[in-house]
Structure formats: structure tokens, C-alpha cells
Design a protein around this nucleic acid. Structure first.
Lengths: 231, 231
DNA sequence: CGTGCGTTTGAGTGAATTCAACGGCTGTGG
DNA sequence: CCACAGCCGTTGAATTCACTCAAACGCACG
């Protein structure tokens, strides 16, 4: 059941280092300058739960999902990471979740030890590192409110607004992930995601010119669904 | 609706500093040595969402809930903190959630700035601070799996096992929180929590000698419900 | 022009919710 | 000491929202 999910490690394609300066946050800069680039195919596993955490990762292009699995195949995606984001840095030992490529993507990789050595040299970096973890924690808390207390419409509204903010700025979003990914992120089924999107379209809040392309027509209406007393 | 929840700040009772050494984790020690003690009554607000984050808190006795609210009163508790736990430390500016006393409790309080100054003096403390945030993040991720993908029975099983581990070690748990708190933590209603507990009792997995006292009769059975591929 | 995958749509079901009533414990005041 | 009020928790009945099962659609690719 759902076995396609565990196709697991598709091929890993090394490629020439990227000197991305899309995002100039110092943490990402460290990766861009010191790290090396790798390519991952769609659905490739970047690291697995319980695996020793040896590297830090930064996204040059594409998107990554962080997930936890149950033994019967149920999956919860706890976050999507997009270009400029850093992930996989554990304080100790092992990863507590797995990371997979949502689509083909280019990832910057740096040894954890090298990254931490750099942080030790630069106090402000250590502080930013902590700040970084805390911002993830804040996101996680907002997401718990969504998962525990919001209706399907509210979940989709929150999701679309978040995605718009993170990867478009304009009213149109090009989603990097499948409906199944969205469902597993929002704690819904693929059918409910699909139905709810068409519902939002019928209500005039969005239009869906292509399944992965969504235009926000009424941000205000979406924000009302989102509630957004949460940060 | 649900207005009792917002009784808000019940009286705050200052009390003589506690030199607790229940838990000797260095972070908590800093609070025990440098901080001052305060008492909070049941349901008192310790700090509110969006309030400037000026202090760090440690629990000497009692329990605290961390929550987010929606404008219509829906509430999600993202964590419970128990004796020995530290909370309220933000990397920057403002709290992204509120904290309330679950029952009467004694809290150690220290100025954020004093705490961070100490951390700056002691490298290992800064590292532990980061480690601390990461362990919260790990918990949050497991909880997202619970909220997004688990059935009511599975949620209660996870909850009970977690509580047993954190506050009893033996098979009997004395719950510090109400059914409403449990419901808001697990993303359920109070009725579902109640029904599911009696169901678990009928199945012989637990016994409930008093509403706040629960005995785990079959940990193995509970673990199976819990699934617990999650850390 | 089929084949395969991702998505949409439909019909029926079900787990948890809502609405409602009852039971039990605690503390207060007569 | 008992009566009563106020909570908190449990139980019951009916509803609902999202889920499951199933089928069809559409696009991309060989």
C-alpha cells in the first residue's frame, strides 16, 4: 500500500558546485561558499530517519519534504523546504525524520562538523543557528494548530497563503509538490485536498489554470479562512 | 463560548526562592541558582502570545501548557511542561504562543538577558541551549504525526505512554490536567477523550480509579497502538 | 494511439463531533 | 449535618465532515 512512496533512493546525480546568492542569509552563505552541490531526482531520499546526521543541507533549487512514517504507511510531512532554506542540522547524533526530494532538485551539502567549526569561530553564526531552530519551532507550532483544529478549507487557505508568500510574492503559485504531498502535509486525504481546492475555486477565492498552478484571486477571503492569529 | 478558559490572569503569588535540585541539567541549574521563584494559580496566564519575551521560565512544581488560540476560541495546546522543564526562551522579540498554569504551580523565573549573558560566558551552555530547542522541535514533529494521522485511540495511547514516562515511571499516572486540556492537546473534543479512555479501559489496557488517576495495565498493547516509529 | 500516472469527481460509510442530559464530587451556607 | 450550586466528567443520540472505495478524466510519454 502506497508503496510508490518508498521507491526510495532514486539516482543521486553529483553536479558542479553552485555559488548561489539567491538568499544572502549568512547561514546559507556558509553552505554556498563551503559546501558542495548535489542533484537529487524526484522522490530521492536525501536522508532517512534514524540515520546518523553527518551533513547540513541547503536548497539551491527545487523543494524538499521532511517526513515521518508509521509502520502501516501513514505519512506526515512536517515541513516543506524551498530554495534558500537550510535543513538536516541536528544537535546530536541521528535524524529524527527523513528528507526526500519533492521534485528534481539541487542541494548544497556540507559536513556537519565543518559547519559547526565555522559556527564556533563566529559567535553571530551560532546565534543565528539557534534563531534558525527557533523559527522552525514557531512554524511547527502554527502547523500543530492547523493539524489539530482547522477545517479542510482553513488548512488549504493557510497552505496557499504560506506558499504564495514563500515562493511567488505575486498572486500565482507554481506548486512543486503533488496532491499527495499536500494531503500528507495538511493531514488530509488526496481526495479531500482536490475537492477542497475546487470548492475554493467555485467560491471565487482562487483559480486553478493547471493542477500545479494556482492563482490567488481573493487573498482577503483566504486570510479570513486562515484566521491567522498564528504567526 | 469557552469563556472560562480566558479567566486569564488569576492571582500571582510571589514566594521564597526555591533551590530545587530535582533535575540537575545544567540549563535548569542556571535557573535554580540565578532565578527567583514565583507561584501561579490554576489557569493563571504566565505570558501571552505576542508579548515581549523578557524572561526564561523553569518549572519547580506543577505543570504548564503552551497554547495558540484562534479568534473563535478554538485552542491547540502544543506542549505540556512538567517539573524540570524550561520554556519561554525566544531567540528574538516576542512570544509566539501563550503559557498558562495547568494547576497551581511554582515557577523559576530569570531575565532572558541574564540567562543569555550566562550562556555567552559558558560555551557548553549555548550548545545545550541549542540542543534544548532541537529536542522541542523533535517533540513537535512527533506531535504533528499524531495530530495529522492518528486515530483517537492512538492519540490517547501515545499521550498516556508519554505522560507515564515523564511523570511516573511506575504504571500509575496522576494527571495534572483536565480532560479539556487533554482534548486541546490531542486535537480532539472532551467527549471523545472521555469515551476513548473508557474504551481503553474496557479493552483492559488501562484502569481509571479516579478521573485524573490512570493505571497502565498493558503497556505493550498501548505501544502497539502508539506505533512509535516516531522517537 | 495506447499506457500510466496524477488528479478529479461521485456515492456511500464511518469516526469524531455536536447537542443534550445525567452523574458525581467538592465546597458553601443554612 | 444536610441541601444545593457549580464544576468536571461521562454517556447517549443524531449529525457532519472527511474518509474509503470506485470510476472517469486528462495529460505526458513512448
Amino acid at each position: 500500500m502506497l508503496s510508490w512512496r518508498s521507491e526510495g533512493s532514486a539516482r543521486v546525480i553529483p553536479f558542479e558546485p553552485v555559488r548561489s546568492n539567491l538568499k544572502s542569509q549568512p547561514l546559507f552563505e556558509v553552505l554556498a561558499v563551503m559546501g558542495s552541490g548535489m542533484g537529487f531526482e524526484r522522490n530521492a531520499e536525501i536522508f532517512a530517519e534514524d540515520e546518523p546526521a553527518e551533513y547540513v543541507y541547503g536548497i539551491a533549487s527545487g523543494a524538499v519534504r521532511i517526513c515521518k512514517l508509521m509502520s502501516d504507511g501513514r505519512r506526515q510531512i512536517s515541513a516543506f523546504y524551498l530554495p534558500g532554506d537550510i535543513f538536516g542540522l541536528e544537535a546530536a547524533g541521528h535524524h529524527s525524520f527523513s528528507a526526500e526530494a519533492v521534485g528534481d532538485c539541487r542541494i548544497l551539502v556540507l559536513k556537519r562538523t565543518a559547519f559547526l567549526a565555522q559556527a564556533a569561530r563566529d559567535d553571530s553564526l551560532m546565534a543565528q543557528l539557534w534563531e534558525h531552530s527557533m523559527s522552525h519551532l514557531r512554524r511547527a507550532q502554527s502547523h500543530m494548530l492547523l493539524l489539530g483544529r482547522k477545517s479542510a478549507q482553513e488548512r488549504l487557505a493557510s497552505f496557499l497563503l504560506d506558499m504564495a508568500e514563500r515562493l511567488s510574492k505575486s498572486g500565482a503559485i507554481e506548486l512543486p509538490m503533488s496532491r499527495q504531498d499536500i494531503a500528507d502535509y495538511l493531514g488530509l486525504t488526496i481526495e479531500t485536498v482536490s475537492r477542497t481546492l475546487t470548492l475554493l475555486e467555485r467560491e471565487g477565492l482562487i483559480t486553478i489554470p493547471a493542477s500545479r498552478r494556482i492563482v490567488l484571486r481573493d487573498r482577503h477571503g483566504l486570510s479570513e479562512l486562515d484566521d491567522c492569529l498564528a504567526a
